[in-house]
Design a binder for these strands. Structure first.
Ligand code: FES
Ligand code: FES
Lengths: 141, 141
DNA sequence: AGAATAAAAGACCTTTTTATCTTTTAATGC
DNA sequence: GCATTAAAAGATAAAAAGGTCTTTTATTCT
């Protein structure tokens, strides 16, 4: 479903939502260590998210990555689509050139159900809301 | 979710279920052309399935690939697991080292629902049954 | 201004996946 | 037995994904 980059991205964003703020920025090192992902690779991903204004960052001493209020109020779907492209939620699970109700593959209806279920979670909630849920339900990221 | 190889494999198997029989074998060329997939690549995949006894084949003139009655009565899940490995339906959608009820990620429950829905289709039906459904409902493969 | 810090950017490198091409082996029909 | 056919097998190559390292740029603090 999601590329590794995308998985790292989602986890990092949730981690930032839970552990950073405009006055408490985190360096790649900390994030990478905490999530146990390769740090240079994560840096690339975070830069990409930053360029696309999905996360915030400042350089220099006491700089780092964090989520602004605006960042917190967007959906994880944007993060996913920034990394894996807009087609992730729109392509046939069997690889047919188009996924449609008119020309469904044998897995289409189940697959759609699934995709919609996931979208419900990552689009129906803001990053802030997801982070709250993670904390309350002690979910792992 | 599935690798390209796996997608080709699933489609090819369904295609064989619909268009071949022990007395009507199909060559890679025909299958590849019909499904519009790279033929040499498909050949490799079919060989792998054949080695694992999920499809049948004979060499020589009037040889080709086909499904035996036994092949028809197995599940697509075996095809999937032969190509993509047994972990496809068992790994965390966010890439956490383990996927479990005890340590769920934020997408765990929705993801599980999805996976189970897909499994229902590809494990709850034999390849033969799936093929019948494809024909009746005019599904695309 | 200058030193220190941390992200941004860019150049590489490695591995895996996807794809192609060639040679070998087995079956068929004459 | 020989020519033909088609899969099996193997070797190679191209592309994409994943990962590392180095240099540059911006910021902060002294
Ligand atoms: S057509 Fe295959 S998932 Fe929609
Ligand atoms: S823990 Fe992530 S899908 Fe189960």
């Amino acid at each position: 479903m999601f590329s590794k980059s995308c998985k790292y991205a989602m986890r990092a964003v949730l981690f930032l939502a839970l552990n950073s703020s405009p006055k408490k920025k985190l360096g790649v090192n900390q994030i990478a260590e905490e999530l146990d992902v390769p740090k240079h690779f994560l840096a690339k991903i975070l830069q990409q998210l930053s360029r696309n204004l999905l996360i915030s960052s400042t350089k220099g001493p006491s700089g780092g990555f964090f989520l602004s209020e605006e960042n917190l109020n967007t959906s994880l779907r944007k993060v996913v689509e920034t990394i894996d492209g807009p087609e992730v939620f729109n392509s046939c699970i069997l690889g047919l050139p188009v996924c449609s109700f008119e020309n469904p593959c044998p897995l289409h209806f189940k697959a759609i159900e699934y995709r919609n279920g996931l979208l419900e979670v990552i689009e129906g909630n803001s990053i802030k809301e997801l982070a709250i849920r993670v904390k309350e339900k002690k979910l792992t990221i």
